[in-house]
Amino acid sequence: MACGDLAPVFSLPDADMEDFSLAGERGRHHVVLYFYPRDNTPGCTLQAADFSDHEADFARHDCIIVGVSPDDCLKHAEFRDQHGLSIRLLSDSDTEVSRLYQVWQEKEVDGVKKMGVARTTFVIDKQGVVRHVLRDVAPRGHAAAVYKLVKELETDNANGNHQEQRGYA
């Protein structure tokens, strides 16, 4: 998955077990689609809370924020309610969408190799085109960096700019 690609469409259930369809957002909203390893870890909580705190700022630019992890809908609901999150959290329990977006990868944790979600954010414009890919994301300050990219989308659309970044915010 690279900048300039058409974002693969999918449908996944959210914390309230209501389906979210990426195709349904085309022509309506820009989408910040971020993949994270799992609910209730320090980094994932910080990232989700930061996006929730700035959701209204994103909305002013016709942008919605959607988080995806392999956790099930009930765990997402508990996570959302425990931390007062407002963004939509989608359950990719079979990791099909994570594989589609190439974020289901082998990781080494404490010397043990296992499969997991690589923390990655995609900024998708209203036409469904991936405009920015941020890989190996550090949660602190990430929402602010993504917000800056979203604010620049209208200008970038006119100029055809796309960016892929690694280790950026």
Rank of each mutant, 00 (worst) to 15 (best):
A118R: 14
T120S: 05
P139W: 06
A144T: 09
L134R: 10
L149I: 06
A144N: 05
T120Y: 09
V150T: 09
V150G: 00
G141V: 07
D125Q: 03
V129P: 04
Y101K: 08
G116D: 00
Q105S: 12
T95W: 00
V112A: 14
K107E: 02
R140E: 06
V97Y: 04
Q102A: 15
V103K: 06
Q102H: 14
G141N: 00
S91G: 13
E108T: 14
K126L: 11
L90C: 03
V137P: 08
K113L: 12
V137F: 09
V146N: 01
T120M: 03
A143V: 05
S93W: 14
L149S: 01
R140G: 05
A143D: 12
P139G: 06
D92H: 05
V109P: 03
K107C: 05
G111C: 04
D110I: 13
R99T: 04
V123K: 06
Y101E: 02
V112M: 15
V103Q: 02
S91Q: 00
Y147Q: 13
D94P: 04
V129R: 07
S93H: 15
G111E: 03
L90K: 04
S98D: 10
V109W: 12
G111T: 08
G141M: 01
P139V: 08
A118H: 12
E108K: 10
L90R: 01
G128C: 10
D125W: 12
Q102E: 15
R99N: 03
Y101C: 07
V112C: 09
S91K: 11
A144L: 13
D92A: 10
D125A: 09
D136P: 07
G116A: 08
Q105V: 12
D136K: 13
Q127H: 06
F122H: 09
L149E: 00
I124D: 10
V123M: 08
P139E: 07
R119N: 04
L90M: 02
T95P: 02
E106D: 15
S98P: 02
T120L: 06
A144F: 04
D110N: 15
E96K: 14
S98N: 03
M115L: 14
V97R: 01
A145G: 09
R140L: 05
D94Q: 13
F122V: 02
K113R: 13
Q105A: 12
V109A: 12
K107H: 10
V97C: 09
S91D: 09
L134S: 11
L149N: 09
V137T: 02
V117M: 02
H142F: 07
G141R: 10
Q127I: 01
L90T: 08
L134C: 12
G116T: 00
A144D: 12
R135H: 07
V146L: 00
L100V: 13
D136L: 07
V117L: 08
F122P: 11
T95L: 07
T120C: 03
